[in-house]
Computed example of a mutant assay.
Amino acid sequence: MNALPTRFFATAALFALAGMIWGVQMSATHDHTLAPAHGHLNLLGFVVMAVFGAYYALAPRAAASRIARVHFWLHTAMVIILPFGIARAITGQGEALAQIGSLAAIASMLMFIYVVWRYRAGAGEQIDKAAPLPAE
């Protein structure tokens, strides 16, 4: 498998762990004020990032492209900025980071749409076959 899908999956797992720890902390303190930020971390950091990783695993030509690497770094930066910005907005510390993160989220999805349109998974690609499963 290309290194890019692995990076997407590994980063998604780290964001999932961070989201879980944050959820446990909210539960332990009985303070769910920042639940929207926590939800964005889980959705964009784990779910969407894992979906991107799955696409890139199925589309090795796309995964090998420069735009895919830029996509990884843009999305990773956005996942770090947006939940923090949402938390700041909820606590009355300003909305600028949430706005920047939101624009980065839109840019990341537009970039993904372009990649899907440009490289079309399965369009003449050879995907490395895994070793055959042992006979049962």
Rank of each mutant, 00 (worst) to 15 (best):
Y55M: 06
V116N: 01
M109K: 07
D31H: 14
L41N: 10
M78D: 03
H71F: 05
I90F: 02
Q93H: 15
M1R: 08
R118A: 15
G122V: 03
P134F: 01
V116Y: 00
M26F: 04
Y55V: 10
A54Y: 08
A35M: 13
T11N: 08
A105L: 11
F52C: 11
A50V: 09
A135W: 00
A131T: 06
T33G: 06
R69A: 12
E95L: 13
L74N: 10
S108Q: 12
N2L: 08
L58R: 15
L34N: 13
W117R: 11
V70C: 06
Q99A: 07
Q93I: 04
W117D: 01
I21H: 03
I106H: 03
A18S: 12
G19D: 00
I80V: 15
L133M: 07
A50Q: 07
F84P: 01
A77V: 13
G39W: 07
Q99Y: 12
L110E: 02
S65A: 14
L17P: 03
T11R: 08
P132A: 10
L110A: 05
P36C: 04
N42W: 07
V47N: 06
T11L: 12
A64R: 06
D31I: 07
R7A: 15
H32Q: 11
A68R: 09
Q25E: 13
L82W: 11
A123C: 01
M111L: 15
A59F: 05
I106C: 02
A35T: 12
W117V: 08
G94N: 02
H38L: 08
A123P: 01
P60V: 09
D128S: 06
K129F: 13
F15R: 10
M49L: 12
A63E: 08
A98F: 12
Y55A: 04
N42A: 14
D31N: 15
D31Y: 04
G45I: 09
F52N: 04
I80K: 03
A57T: 05
L74R: 05
A98L: 05
A12V: 10
F8L: 12
R61V: 03
A59W: 08
T6G: 05
V47F: 14
M78V: 04
H71R: 10
I67H: 06
G53F: 10
H32W: 14
F15W: 10
A131Y: 10
I21E: 01
R118Y: 00
R7S: 12
I67Y: 05
A12F: 07
L103Y: 11
I86C: 00
G101W: 13
R61A: 03
V79H: 09
G53Y: 07
L43S: 05
G122F: 00
M78Q: 15
W22P: 00
T33Y: 09
A63L: 09
E95V: 15
Y56M: 06
V70H: 14
Y119L: 01
M78E: 10
A87V: 12
V51I: 14
A77E: 02
H32L: 14
I90C: 02
F84C: 07
F52Q: 11
A89K: 15
W73M: 08
P36I: 09
Y56C: 05
Q99C: 03
H38Q: 08
Q99V: 14
A135S: 03
R69L: 14
M1W: 09
E136W: 06
F112H: 15
L34R: 10
